[in-house]
């Protein structure tokens, strides 16, 4: 039974619900009948070949992309054209991008404080204290006054994670967070994500890092050509993949 639109649910219901979601880019049907439910504290890893629509799907969750059919409900708030709904959802959902997208004209601290001050109305001193707290959480407090261009890729991504955490989101979305990093920096970012998971953060992660997936994910999803082909508990997913396409994909990705 779908949740009534006007009722704001506390964490008793599912965190994210997508029901019969379709999306087109022009004529191209990029998301076909997506149905998924994510509960509080769940960690989902989404994998699949490029062009399968994984990025588009999670970007629909914070309305960076608009869906044309179906319903998306995040923490009891339905995503429609209503701006207030969109803003509330975006405050609850944090996103980490493949390209980091740090603000180059601001220092690390200013990057972290920007949204709390302007979107939540937090006093500056409080925001800076919170910023330092999260910088320590991601193990780079000494970089507080540097500019993003002075940091390595791994450090920048950790700052990006801290930046999202400063808004105290209930859900964190990761869109291939380590794909743009040099190999030696991938571990430091994954470690931060693992510790986040251990604290009980609801996470949806798009990644090719299967080792990470096995450690952290409660459930795995395989997407291809705009559909969710297979979805299962992690152990079952890796040991007994049901679909031929899943098997093919896993064999390609696990072989090296």
């Amino acid at each position: 039974m779908p949740t009534p639109i006007n009722q704001v649910q506390e964490s008793s219901g599912p965190m994210i619900q997508m029901m019969g979601v379709h999306k087109w880019f022009g004529e191209f049907h990029v998301l076909k009948d997506i149905n998924l439910t994510v509960h509080k504290g769940e960690r989902i890893v989404v994998c699949g070949p490029s062009g399968s629509g994984k990025s588009t799907m999670i970007r629909c969750m914070n309305r960076l992309e608009e869906h044309q059919r179906g319903r998306i409900i995040v923490d009891g708030i339905e995503l429609t054209n209503d701006l207030t709904h969109i803003e509330r959802v975006r405050r609850e959902v944090g996103m980490v991008f493949q390209q980091f997208n740090l603000f180059p004209h601001l220092t690390v601290t200013e990057n972290l404080c920007l949204a709390p001050i302007w979107a939540r109305g937090m006093p500056r001193v409080e925001a800076e204290q919170a910023a330092m707290k999260y910088l320590e959480r991601v193990h780079i407090p000494e970089q507080a006054h540097k500019y993003p261009s002075q940091l390595s890729g791994g450090q920048q991504q950790r700052v990006a994670i801290a930046r999202s955490l400063c808004m105290n989101p209930k859900i964190m979305l990761f869109d291939e967070p380590t794909s743009a990093l040099d190999p030696e920096m991938i571990k430091e970012v994954l470690d931060v994500m693992i510790s986040l998971a251990e604290e009980g953060m609801t996470m949806i992660v798009i990644t090719h890092e299967m080792g990470f997936a096995r450690t952290v994910a409660d459930r795995m999803m395989f997407m291809d050509s705009g559909e969710i082909i297979e979805e299962n508990v992690t152990s079952e997913f890796f040991n007994n993949p049901k679909s031929e396409r899943t098997k093919l994909f896993l064999s390609q990705i696990l072989s090296h």
Partner: peptide, 13 residues
């Protein structure tokens, strides 16, 4: 870059 705008929006700005 478009990513800047997306990052800002996803932070709730």
């Amino acid at each position: 870059s478009q990513g800047q705008i997306e990052a800002a929006y996803s932070l709730g700005l």
